[in-house]
Design a binder for these strands. Structure first.
Lengths: 199, 199
DNA sequence: TCAATCTCCAAACGTCTGGTTGGATTTGAT
DNA sequence: ATCAAATCCAACCAGACGTTTGGAGATTGA
């Protein structure tokens, strides 16, 4: 009758959420299946039923978190300031959802091969197009380099806190945000026709 | 006098070298004590004799690799070009000894607290002074930000290859090197008092 | 209602892990 | 030759790990 069957989707979601948390905190090797089941409130066995194993769960968690990365961050307006604005919003996103940056680094350090490479490459390419739309003077390669620099700086800030700690003392979010924004703007301004370019 | 009984220092060194390799490759959780003993050629038990345990060996390996980081990389000359040159050499160093960058990220992601913080802070401060010596127009904070940006970009390039892969396709060392150098130079030029920047 | 099906869970399994131990073997000094 | 220290080695330990299993309880269709 009307009453709902088992809420199997909710179980999957709870497991995925817990997996994202645990894998983001401790990486693949450090994550514990027992801990994921504990914080999800589900039984350990459900992981194997729904996902197959630890490795597959890692992939599923990674996919879910990474694929939607650049989506909600359009570049509005045009010119270097629009790029700087985008960088600021990407910084804020990385700050508010550090699992994205951390999972990215875990993936690179532990796993090696990127999951969902095609999808991510596609979204990255779209973002590069957006950048070039806002900065027609930029070459394709320069736009890629710029996006890579912005993403790298934001990710590293949230996932590698001790380098900042050692260099600048107590980390200061606002200050770093301003620095990254400034860097992005300078790079955006550094286009052929606006200044002399490196070969 | 003369010759020593057993070359105990060599044993320590072999263990440390192997530990650096293994920890750099797989991180703390992923590294296997058995593997370290294997590639060092020493017995597993020697690790506990000399270092106490896995955690202490990790600290020792990290210390040895990180503390000497910025030492052999003086800033020669002055002006933005000197900074760009430094960035290029730091890039080359990171490329040729990736364990430095990787261990730094492992430390940040897994461990949290920086090992040898005081020593590293001191050397970083020295480097900041050097930068300011080459660029008197830069404020202390700006010099710190600049150093942090250079180090971050170089480290991330060698330890997080999939972001570049997804954004630019096949990674190109020379191209990235040029991009980081250009970024450093732009940042170095962006100082109060240098209102207009000729290239 | 009955039986089939699905979700969940507790317990168990086999393996691997970091770490320990005791003794055999090597080495240089005396 | 003898001694002591350094090393190796094999076995062992207890705990943690990822994974599997057997069945209990809930749900559904007839």
């Amino acid at each position: 009758m009307g009453s709902m069957a088992w809420d199997t989707d909710a179980t999957r979601e709870k497991l995925l959420d817990a997996a994202i948390t645990e894998f983001s905190d401790r990486g693949f090797s450090g994550a514990r299946i027992h801990q994921i089941s504990r914080i999800s409130g589900c039984n350990r066995e459900r992981i194997y039923f729904y996902f197959g194993g630890k490795a597959e769960l890692f992939e599923a968690a990674l996919t879910r978190e990474l694929v939607t990365a650049l989506d909600d961050l359009p570049i509005v307006g045009s010119g270097p300031v629009a790029i700087a604005d985008f960088a600021g919003r990407y910084f804020d996103l990385s700050r508010s959802r550090p699992s994205l940056a951390r999972l990215t680094f875990w993936e690179g350090l532990e796993q090696g091969h990127p999951v969902g490479a095609e999808t991510r490459a596609l979204r990255a390419a779209n973002k590069v197009s957006e950048i070039r739309g806002a900065l027609p003077a930029l070459s394709e390669a320069a736009a890629e380099d710029l996006l890579l620099t912005i993403v790298t700086l934001c990710h590293a800030w949230v996932s590698s806190p001790n380098v900042p700690l050692v260099i600048t003392g107590t980390p200061d979010d606002e200050r770093r945000r301003a620095s990254i924004i400034r860097t992005s703007e300078l790079l955006a301004r550094d286009a052929p026709g606006m200044a002399s370019q490196p070969s």
